[in-house]
Computed example of a mutant assay.
Amino acid sequence: MSKRTEKTIVDIAEELKLSVSTVSRALNNHPNISTRTKEKVKKMANKLGYRPNAMAAGLRNNKSRTVGLVVPRISMFFPATISTVIQNKLHEHGYHVLICQSNDSLEQEIALAETLYSTRIDALAVSSTLYTTDFSHFDIFKDNHIPLVFFDRVPKDYKVKVIKGDDYLGGYKVTEHLIEKGCKDIVHISGPLTCNLYVERVAGYKDALRKHKIAFKKSRVFYQELTKENALAACEKIFSKTPYPDGIFAANDTTAITILEYCRKINVRVPEDLKIVGYSNDPRAEIITPSITSVDQFPAIMGEKVANALLDLLQQPATTPQRYSEELVPIQLIERASSAASVSKPKTTVKKKAK
């Protein structure tokens, strides 16, 4: 089977009896080339199946006009929304975006960093895996003055631009909200503490309990990947014996929805017997019954901030050293039916008949 031969601008030039430089300018919409010539060149390029070699062009001008983006899972609502905003914003400024997912695998994240560096991207934005604690595989970008931005899941002490949500405040507000609704025994289902998100949310949870003089109990906190399967396993433990908790703070909405479905099966009423609050304001939280109180992390705002940070860094001189700076994206508690105040039914009294 013969190997496909790539057509080049030389082939186009020969077919049209034009110089290679004229063809090149026509393909790049140079103002000095007539519209008629541009149309002829592009028509012949399509006929021959010519494909521009962006990598070769990047080698010539030391710019690929391509930005790398690494997220844990593109299927999740939060990173999917952020990725879309980043891609659209950068496209407006003439950049292409290579979106990669690590699947929360540190091994894949390391391999992606190497691949994206070899691809000669102009900048990189990363939301790290749950288990990334050593970020040295990104040193090659810093050392070579390639703009690097971390967002959402970020390193603690790594000298680059960091954009993250106010997760401490989110954890605090959720816990205080449950307390204000009358909860005194609040379970927190957290992610692993190798990730900054959950370190900060747990800290907010603890401080809210402390402020309201409610004892923190280690047995009431679960540290796990926030999957449906793990949420069900946690439910088995939580509801294996009484007393049941009167509030649950779930660190994502998938977990909150799973708890709600489990409670329905064991006849625990939400919000009358148990109040539930999730996190990230996934669209599913609003349409399920009862709708779930959650924390809006404003992914569109975060995506906009990440894109702007990348564009700002790309405008700086190539030798500018990267410095640590942190930018917080606000959060907002969205109150819904799953944590509504319980309405006690009035007792019915039977009037005695007069004798």
Rank of each mutant, 00 (worst) to 15 (best):
N103S: 11
S294E: 11
P52K: 15
L169Q: 13
A354F: 10
S128F: 11
F216K: 02
N62M: 05
P321Q: 07
R284P: 00
E304C: 13
H212C: 06
K156G: 12
K156S: 15
V343F: 04
S338V: 03
E200I: 03
K156F: 14
V41H: 04
K265P: 07
S291A: 13
T132H: 00
N46S: 14
T194I: 10
V329I: 15
D185L: 03
H93Q: 14
I287Q: 02
V85W: 02
E14N: 12
V67W: 06
R269V: 09
Y50R: 08
P79Q: 07
V20H: 10
V10T: 07
D139R: 03
T293L: 08
E304R: 13
H96P: 00
E272H: 06
E327A: 04
I140M: 10
I110A: 00
I288T: 12
K275Y: 10
S24P: 13
A13S: 07
L260H: 05
L98C: 08
E335H: 05
L311V: 10
A231K: 12
K265T: 14
L226I: 03
S19F: 02
P31D: 05
F135E: 05
N196Y: 07
C183L: 03
V71H: 01
V199I: 15
E114H: 15
R73L: 11
H91M: 05
M1A: 13
Y95H: 02
A233H: 09
R51A: 04
T242W: 07
Y223Q: 14
R201I: 01
I140T: 05
A125S: 10
K355P: 12
Y279I: 00
L310R: 06
R201F: 06
L197R: 03
S339F: 09
V126F: 11
I238H: 09
L310K: 02
V85F: 02
I86P: 03
S338K: 07
A57W: 01
G49E: 10
S128K: 12
C263M: 14
S21L: 07
V20I: 15
A215T: 11
T84I: 06
T8E: 00
E229P: 09
E180V: 00
P271T: 02
S64M: 09
P290V: 04
Q332I: 09
R220C: 04
M76G: 06
A57G: 06
V343I: 14
S24W: 09
Y172N: 05
H212E: 04
I292P: 08
A231I: 10
S19Y: 05
A256V: 13
T119P: 01
K184M: 13
T227K: 11
P346W: 06
L116Y: 10
F216I: 03
K142R: 14
Y205W: 10
F151K: 03
K161L: 04
A13K: 05
E39W: 07
K142Y: 01
R51D: 04
P330W: 03
E180R: 06
F78L: 05
S291I: 08
I248M: 00
D166N: 14
T348I: 14
K7T: 00
S24H: 07
L311R: 08
S240Q: 11
I266D: 01
T8D: 01
A123G: 08
E14D: 13
V154E: 05
D296V: 08
A208K: 09
Q101A: 04
E286K: 15
V67Y: 06
